[in-house]
């Protein structure tokens, strides 16, 4: 089952990944990061298909896509 990890120290909350996700799995975290952003986070892991679109759009290379 695919999943993603968001490096909250790199994420700047542009949410390009949120928009790019074809399954609308990603959303905005409610926890503020050290950088002062509400980073992107996986909210519906069960729907993730590992398509890497989020990784593709992330300008901060904050996303790792993993297949268990």
């Amino acid at each position: 089952m695919p999943r993603i990890e968001v490096d909250v120290n790199r994420c700047k909350a542009c949410y390009l990944c949120v928009n790019a996700c074809p399954k609308k799995c990603l959303g905005k975290s409610t926890v503020i990061s050290k950088k002062g952003y509400f980073p992107a986070e996986m909210q519906r892991p069960q729907d993730c298909i590992g398509c890497k679109m989020c990784y593709m759009m992330c300008p901060d290379v904050a996303i790792t896509v993993i297949k268990e």
Binding site: K12, C14, G50, Y55, C58, P59, D60, T64, I66
Partner: peptide, 27 residues
């Protein structure tokens, strides 16, 4: 566990200073 996509080795660990949403980081 297989990594499908992650930060390429040819980038350092230094977080980029570009503004949120800027295209530089993608390139």
């Amino acid at each position: 566990m297989t990594i499908l996509a992650k930060k390429p080795q040819s980038l350092t660990d230094v977080p980029m200073h570009y503004c949120p949403g800027c295209g530089h980081g993608i390139v």
